[in-house]
Write a protein that binds this DNA or RNA. Structure first.
Lengths: 181, 181
DNA sequence: ATAATAAAATACCGACTGGTATAAAAATGG
DNA sequence: CCATTTTTATACCAGTCGGTATTTTATTAT
């Protein structure tokens, strides 16, 4: 997981992983079945261990601007995400994934849009989001803005630029004028 | 260029290109020096032949919303861009590029931000952009939003989703309420 | 202590990569 | 028509890829 997280999963070979993890190649294949099984296992673990933080931010029920602040911090400045995100990296090269990993990527993507949709519905009910667009459309938009920021960080862009771009992107939903972030 | 455009440049081998172009491998190496030289040549040609259209839209001096319309059409619906954009694809995998191609990618990226900055300055002078952010920041933001849309198209996302996301992204600069697009 | 079992290390497989050396074919100059 | 040069086609290079077969080493159970 650390190797997939630091580098692009497409650039990390099974051989390299065996050396990094000090594991024999037949052992890896017995445990995971192959590259697809390993990537799937990594992604499942990563979702439960890292992406869950996004779900917690969304489910906290905090005011809109507070939640956006937290999301912007997670994607834009949290040092843990300095090398980007395993999920978005895999999704960016999804045509190279095996069936089991692709299945997980698709499911996580859909779950993310759902979670943001529910979040937006809740904020609309609470009165601090008054957008005129359907919640799923804005949810998809936010998922992509976060992905954009994380991919920028992965490729070493200037953090200030990443945060500026993310703040502008969030200003669509943050309210009237850009931007409090 | 067509092969790099349809597929990801990282997934097109020199051997495949020789077969597609019906060119001998030594001939390709004599002409371009290697993969890096070929990619550089492709990117130069692509910039002059395709990316120039963006420059023309920006230089037209049309009202802000008209120019954004044109940009959204170019990135979101123009069938020519259905498989994405050579430049953004190369930029996404820039750690895999040779020095000459990387140089061109960096230069095009900087030139794009410059062109958008000048465009925004002109629209501010004309009075139809009243944003409070520095033009270069918004320019970088727009370059990334267009790149996002083109990468989504390259990976086969639903066109409606691409256009919705792009429209929301542009609404930051398009004016008060989202969105006329 | 020995027999059965599980794991590991190693070497190997065919396929592919970017790149090149060699040999045959074609075009060109006189 | 012949000699020279350029281009082609082909085979090859070393290296890497994901995946596996084989052989040796540990572990375990009796």
């Amino acid at each position: 997981m650390r190797a997939y997280w630091r580098d692009d999963p497409a650039d990390v070979s099974i051989n390299a992983i065996c050396k990094l993890a000090d594991v024999s190649k037949p052992g890896l294949y017995r445990e995971f079945g192959g590259e697809d099984g390993l990537m799937r296992a990594v992604l499942d673990r990563y979702a439960e261990q890292v992406l869950s933080e996004i779900g917690e931010i969304l489910a906290r029920g905090a005011p809109l601007t507070d939640s956006l602040q937290d999301l912007a911090h997670f994607a834009g400045v949290d040092p843990k995400m300095e090398t980007g995100c395993v999920f978005y990296k895999m999704r960016a090269g999804k045509h190279r994934l095996g069936p089991r990993t692709l299945e997980a990527v698709t499911a996580i993507d859909a779950a993310a849009v759902d979670a943001f949709s529910e979040f937006l519905d809740a904020r609309r009910a609470a009165g601090d989001w008054t957008g005129s667009h359907p919640a799923p459309v804005v949810a998809r938009y936010l998922v992509e803005q976060i992905g954009l920021a994380l991919m920028q960080r992965a490729s070493g862009e200037d953090p200030k630029q990443v945060q500026d771009t993310l703040a502008l992107g969030f200003s669509v939903v943050a309210g009237t004028g850009p931007s409090v972030l």
